[in-house]
Amino acid sequence: MVPSLEGLTFAPVADQAPGQVGTGTRFTYHEQDGGIWAEYAGGDVVRGRLVGTRSGDRLDFRYVQLTHDGITSSGHCESRIVELPDGRLRLEESWQWESRTGDGTSIVEEVTRHAR
C-alpha cells in the first residue's frame, strides 16, 4: 500500500502556463478515512484548495484557486500516486479546467523525504 499523504508537501517539477501552478507552488496534503484535501499557494497562485477522495493509489478531486491578477478558477483532477526510488512520493496528474477552457498533465513530487 502506498503511504499516507497526511502532512506531506509537494511541488510541481515544471512550470505550467501563466496563472497556473508552477515550481514555486507548494501543496500541503491531508488525508483521513478515504478523503483528501490540500492547501496550496506560491508562484502565480495566491491561495488554492482541493478536496476529493483516495482509492488505493488513485486520487480524484476538485480544485479552486485565486491568482495574483484576481482571477478565480476551478477544475477537476485525477492523480496516481507513485513511490520514487528514494522513498518520496510523486503524483502523476491529469487535469481539466471546469471554469474555463484547457486541460493537461502535470507531475508534483514530495519536497522532502518523509520518514516512513
Rank of each mutant, 00 (worst) to 15 (best):
E6D: 06
V46C: 07
F61M: 13
R116G: 13
A17I: 06
W95K: 10
L84M: 15
E98P: 15
E109T: 09
R88A: 02
L8P: 12
G48P: 03
F61Q: 06
M1N: 12
F27S: 05
L5W: 02
R62D: 08
E6N: 06
T101Y: 02
R116M: 08
T9D: 08
T23P: 10
G48V: 01
D103Y: 13
W37I: 03
G34Q: 06
G87D: 05
P12I: 09
W95T: 10
W95E: 12
E83M: 13
L66W: 10
S99F: 04
V82S: 14
D69C: 10
G102I: 06
G70W: 13
D57C: 03
P3Y: 07
F10V: 01
S4C: 10
A38H: 01
A115M: 13
R58F: 05
T9M: 15
E83C: 11
G19N: 00
D33Q: 09
S106N: 06
Q16R: 06
W97G: 12
R80W: 11
Q32L: 10
E110I: 06
V108E: 04
D60M: 00
G22R: 01
P12S: 12
Q96R: 14
W97P: 15
V46S: 10
E109N: 04
C77W: 04
V64W: 05
T112R: 15
I36R: 00
G19P: 00
R58S: 09
V64Q: 08
T101E: 03
R62N: 02
R113I: 07
E93Q: 15
C77L: 07
E98G: 11
T25E: 06
V111P: 01
H76I: 07
A38Q: 02
V45G: 05
G104M: 04
E92W: 10
P18F: 05
A11R: 09
V108R: 06
A41S: 07
H30P: 14
I81T: 14
T53S: 12
L89Q: 03
G7T: 08
D44K: 08
Y40Q: 01
V111A: 01
P85E: 09
G34M: 05
A115R: 15
T72R: 07
V45Q: 07
E110D: 01
D15W: 02
L66D: 09
V51I: 08
R47C: 11
S4I: 03
D44A: 14
I71L: 14
L91K: 00
L59A: 03
R54A: 01
T28P: 11
T23A: 07
W95M: 13
Y63H: 00
R47P: 11
D57R: 10
D15S: 05
Y29R: 00
Y29M: 08
G43Y: 05
D86V: 12
I107H: 10
Q16W: 06
